[in-house]
Design a protein around this nucleic acid. Sequence first.
DNA 1: GACCTAGTGGAATACCTGTTCCAGAAATGG
DNA 2: CCATTTCTGGAACAGGTATTCCACTAGGTC
Lengths: 278, 278
Amino acid sequence: MPTSPIAVPTDFETLRTTIVEQRATLPKRLMQVAAYALDHPDEIAFGTTASIAAAASVQPSTLVRFAQHFGLDGFSGLQQIFQARLRGRTASYEDRLRQLESAGAAETESGTILKGFIGAAHQSLDALSAAIEPEKLEQAVDILARAETIYLIARRRSFPVVTSMAYALGKLKIRCQVVSSAAGNDDDLLEQAGPRDAAFAVSFAPYAPESAAQARALADRGIPVVALTDSALSPLAGIAQVWFELMEADHAGFRSLSASLAFAMALTVSVAERRRQL
Amino acid sequence: MPTSPIAVPTDFETLRTTIVEQRATLPKRLMQVAAYALDHPDEIAFGTTASIAAAASVQPSTLVRFAQHFGLDGFSGLQQIFQARLRGRTASYEDRLRQLESAGAAETESGTILKGFIGAAHQSLDALSAAIEPEKLEQAVDILARAETIYLIARRRSFPVVTSMAYALGKLKIRCQVVSSAAGNDDDLLEQAGPRDAAFAVSFAPYAPESAAQARALADRGIPVVALTDSALSPLAGIAQVWFELMEADHAGFRSLSASLAFAMALTVSVAERRRQL
DNA sequence: GACCTAGTGGAATACCTGTTCCAGAAATGG
DNA sequence: CCATTTCTGGAACAGGTATTCCACTAGGTC
């Protein structure tokens, strides 16, 4: 049942573009398969109809139909295309990167900058895995897992850390409140916080005074505060019940938040996991 | 029947060296398999016992014996090692983390989760540096550097990416506008955009329809759009003048934004740098 | 030279594979 | 609104899978 009037794809790139072209007209389930296939090409190459179908939340027969939709005989034909893509690709990732570096002598400026930030992020992550003490992390998870509502405090550069946490917490059905509203009712919000709640505050130099003030206000009222900051000299260090020091490596004076976000996500998921056990 | 007293190999390199070490003492037929396997690793990864046995002039059962000789359960275990070698999922980081685990004895659950996210972030960064084409990056920088105002479009999970960009752009005195206000005046904001402006849109699956709609509205009026998304099937791919595909590795079904933020910062700083030269 | 052990070939098997088929659901068009 | 086409889920099936098992061979040892 080759729907397409054009030739059937025989290599991965052709298949890929064909899929993208038909994006609009593809039936729902076939679309699901298309998305999964392009996102997890290795799984298609190595998996079985059963395993792939399960991973893509689809029936095995749908995989066959998907392949036939593009003029192939069946799933096996599709799989061969995905396998061919991997064949002969003997080089490991690291090897490939090395090749890119040596080959791509003519570096663009933006490419250099990107590599710089990628390098800085790698460094930050390594520092993170070395710096975090498991016991403190457990304590922090404990505090936040017991909280009815988690108040998230951050300004400026740290702000994205708490917004991404807020999104994830929301998905996990854990109540949280970002305290950084443009409406200016932050203090009203914080007054609603009670001793059964908890707060997570993030602040990097130059420390926003509001964040520290809000964290202190909560701490004074007996609400436990967990903090993420970049130095023992941070105002948060003296306020928080548990605090973590995380120094993002910088590139050209700018710091990205790669490690902070990895930490935030780990904290979030750990809290959710702990909650299930309570 | 694990002949070797040492641990069973779990990655290709270990297996390879183990085979080479035992070269002298290996029985004839197993030697035949060893030679074939090292010469045609792709065949082992993709073939079946029957096809490989025929190609190596050996019985299928010999393949099983070969695998068991190295302490593996059977041929399937052997095949998995050869498959992992070709998988984009670089075993290297996972292996390194596993080593850390075995060294660091008593693991806490949150510690394991953190390491998972750190590993995923490393992987994402590697994928980023392999995937980004310098020419496209230059084009994007060009577009954004010429813009009077940069409109930043993102929702939900992607939102932190643009807030961190907004912060950095502000520091760099580059005018920008986050189009995601709670006030609901997004469309009014977008109407102010003119052909001398530009937009940067971020959207990951499941794609927020508003983001695509806003990006399209701008594109239709001749305003160039640069996009960051996670799949060629993303609605943004068809809209943007230049778009980048960046797939964050996931841990336990959750994705952090480590690589996206590194990319965003690189783009921001590159744009600032380019502006100084204009 | 008989014995034993390690190695080998090949058939038997239980399981799982990709594929087909069809009833019914959903979408489409008049 | 119904008729018609397209799409989907699930069971059924034939073929191939990795594995096991056992008879047999080869090579070395007392």
